[in-house]
Design a protein around this nucleic acid. Structure first.
Lengths: 111, 111
DNA sequence: ACTGCTTCCATCGATAGACGATGGGAAGAC
DNA sequence: GTCTTCCCATCGTCTATCGATGGAAGCAGT
């Protein structure tokens, strides 16, 4: 029971991270999780049960589009692509994130 | 319906912020909200419906203690004090936060 | 005396997001 | 033929933030 939850992610930043990953180019879900783990030096570990619902959100909001295809490993994979609206959203979420983090850092650095 | 929620806070950072505020010394709830707003240059606006439940959590976890008293303005106020365990928790949450933010920044700065 | 603003407390219900568990299918290695 | 890896996805639980709401008490102005 009430065990502490081990957070692998800062809540509220998942969409931002996914959008950023997709800014590199078309990518499938599994690949997104890998890229995030790698570029964060194994700190950010996005589970599939967080990832796929998030991708559904992004689709619904029109920030990404999806198409079926085959992965490099010859497997059935769904490729996601950033839309122009997605690019705008990425910029907005990024600015917001930086703003919030800067504010928190100010608080944390007060004596 | 589905209007976007205006986030005044990075989810998951409220406890950290409160603990940090209380590291300055004994303080009442309203005062905590003010300090956070001021030291963050009006970015972090903690609503009372976020603040008081959070304080209850901290009490339950033994990270703060509370006692009734009178505010500077001569009003009935409940003063919260950081416990040693609270100080440890503050350090831990802060380290975790910095670690996560650094990881996210790495992702955001990849080309 | 009344009105209203500010300070200070607190709860409730709705909503959203992250996660563990679980399920499946198909490729390639041994 | 079995195992591992890759790749998809959903369901249920839990936690946290927030809007709305309610109250009490001090102070200022009229």
């Amino acid at each position: 029971m009430g065990r502490h939850q081990q957070l692998e992610l800062l809540p509220g930043t998942l969409d931002l991270l996914i959008l950023k990953a997709l800014a590199r180019g078309k990518m499938h879900g599994y690949g997104i999780a890998q890229i995030l783990k790698e570029t964060s030096d194994n700190v950010l570990e996005v589970g599939e049960s967080s990832l796929y619902p998030a991708l559904q959100r992004l689709l619904l909001n029109g920030w990404v589009t999806a198409e079926w295809g085959a992965s490099e490993n010859n497997r059935r994979a769904r490729y996601y692509t950033l839309t122009p609206a997605g690019r705008k959203q990425l910029a907005a979420e990024r600015a917001d994130f930086e703003r919030m983090v800067a504010a928190i850092q100010r608080v944390l650095q007060t004596a």
